[in-house]
Nucleic acid binder design. Structure first.
Length: 290
DNA sequence: TACCAGGGCCTTT
DNA sequence: AAAGGCCATGGT
């Protein structure tokens, strides 16, 4: 990592060379829910109990308001800046569907989110849409997360949620998912489920462990493992990915790409969503329709 | 195997 | 302005 200090108008910022980091692709592909693009092009978000402002300038990523130590110890890991995405894209480019998805968003990367935040967020994501998921998480953090100096809130700890009941979550307006979140919080806070141990467990054991939580099925378990535990071989299958698999991989997903299947899935998911979302309902049925 | 469980965003009319 | 579809699902 090349690191240096740049000077902006008001405050010094750490800058890192990251040519293959596209904030819009990273933050708007559905893997995270707490980043917002501001009018000046800066991205603002909260993770690990800290606010960060981030801006891309040329090939460099500017970390505004973060010390060099924070960048090294927290953000470098969170953004997974040590991973060689150029090599990953090269490997993916040999596959036809993936080549197209990678060419569409070469700056897409997976974040290494906090396991609890990922688990909780994807429990809340079920049968739900992204704008509403963001609103629910905002209200959950504001109600039960530790306040930050700037008026923001950390993601609430499982211990903070474990002692609540469904009525306490009413203001969050997450509907039938309230009981699911509370069950997850209790199992994690009590130590019955050790999220930090999941990364080292065999995949089937880790999945089974997570699925003992009410409201956590195969899809949510894989999302928590992929986005929160760094299990890049996890391949969450939702309605979009199911569509992609049947359309482009009728004989199954290539064995050679399985170890990075989670990253592949994200490229494919992002491409498919960006090309289908604004498609009028009256459009003629194409290859991606059911 | 269907159907049900909040609620609200978004598109269409 | 109003209606209805739809939603990174899982439980029963």
């Amino acid at each position: 990592m090349t690191q240096q200090t740049a000077t902006t108008q008001t405050c010094p910022a750490v800058s890192v060379c990251a040519p293959d980091f596209d904030p819009a692709a990273v933050f708007e592909n559905g893997q995270c829910f707490r980043w917002e693009r501001r009018r000046d092009g800066t991205w603002s978000g909260i993770a690990h109990g800290r606010r960060l402002h981030l801006r891309k300038e040329g090939n460099r990523l500017l970390f505004l308001g973060a010390s060099p130590e924070e960048v090294q110890t927290i953000w470098h890991h969170y953004f997974d800046l040590g991973r060689d995405y150029a090599a990953i894209r090269t490997a993916f480019a040999r596959d036809k569907a993936l080549a197209r998805a990678v060419a569409f968003a070469p700056g897409l990367r997976l974040l290494r989110q906090d396991p609890w935040e990922a688990l909780c967020s994807f429990i809340l994501s079920q049968n739900n849409n992204i704008p509403r998921i963001k609103g629910i998480i905002d209200r959950l953090c504001a109600a039960f997360g530790a306040p930050l100096e700037d008026g923001g809130f950390a993601f609430p700890l499982p211990q903070a949620l474990a002692e609540l009941d469904a009525a306490d979550l009413a203001p969050v307006r997450c509907g039938f998912r309230a009981g699911y979140v509370l069950d997850a919080a209790r199992k994690v806070a009590s130590g019955e489920i050790d999220l930090d141990a999941l990364a080292a467990l065999p995949l089937d054991k880790a999945r089974a462990m997570l699925q003992t939580i009410r409201g956590v099925g195969p899809k949510v378990a894989d999302c928590a493992l992929l986005f929160g535990c760094g299990r890049l071989d996890c391949f969450p299958v939702d309605v979009w990915v199911r569509r992609i698999l049947t359309a482009y991989y009728p004989d199954g997903f290539p064995e050679a790409l399985r170890p990075l299947g989670g990253i592949a899935q994200q490229f494919l998911f992002h491409y498919e969503r960006c090309h289908a979302v604004r498609r009028p309902q009256s459009a003629p049925a194409g290859g991606i329709d059911r």
